[in-house]
Simulated assay, not measured.
Amino acid sequence: MMEDDEPWADPQIKLNYEKALGSFLVRFNRIENAISSIIYQALHCLSSDDLAQFVALNRGALASSVG
């Protein structure tokens, strides 16, 4: 098992990895926000305002409860 302070890769590889991971997380967050907005709008159009409000208040909770 490797310790966290041991160099596991070339510093440039580590920087590229961290940059790619950050980029992925930003894109994932944008997708999550867009999906939440679509669900909110659909529920609002279906006159399910109580569910739409739940989605608006618990945006992150829905994604983290799956899986």
Rank of each mutant, 00 (worst) to 15 (best):
M2G: 01
E3V: 00
E3I: 00
E3N: 12
D4L: 12
D4T: 07
E6M: 11
E6N: 02
E6Y: 07
P7S: 08
W8K: 09
W8G: 05
W8V: 06
A9K: 05
A9I: 01
D10T: 03
D10M: 02
P11R: 08
P11T: 04
P11V: 05
I13G: 00
I13C: 03
K14V: 14
K14Q: 13
L15M: 09
L15V: 04
L15C: 00
N16W: 09
N16C: 05
E18R: 11
E18I: 03
K19Q: 13
K19C: 01
A20E: 14
A20I: 02
A20L: 13
L21K: 15
L21T: 09
G22R: 14
G22F: 06
G22S: 15
S23T: 14
F24W: 14
L25R: 15
L25G: 01
V26M: 07
V26D: 13
V26R: 13
R27T: 07
N29R: 15
I31C: 05
E32A: 12
E32S: 07
I35R: 05
S36F: 03
I38V: 13
I39R: 07
Y40L: 07
Y40C: 03
Y40D: 04
Q41C: 03
Q41V: 05
A42L: 10
A42N: 12
L43P: 01
H44V: 01
C45M: 11
L46F: 12
L46M: 12
S47K: 14
D49H: 13
D50A: 12
D50I: 03
D50H: 09
L51D: 13
Q53M: 04
Q53K: 12
F54S: 04
F54Q: 05
A56C: 04
A56T: 01
L57C: 03
L57V: 00
L57N: 15
R59C: 02
G60P: 00
A61G: 07
L62N: 02
L62A: 04
L62E: 05
A63G: 00
A63F: 15
S65M: 10
V66T: 08
V66H: 09
G67L: 07
G67S: 12
G67H: 11
G67T: 07
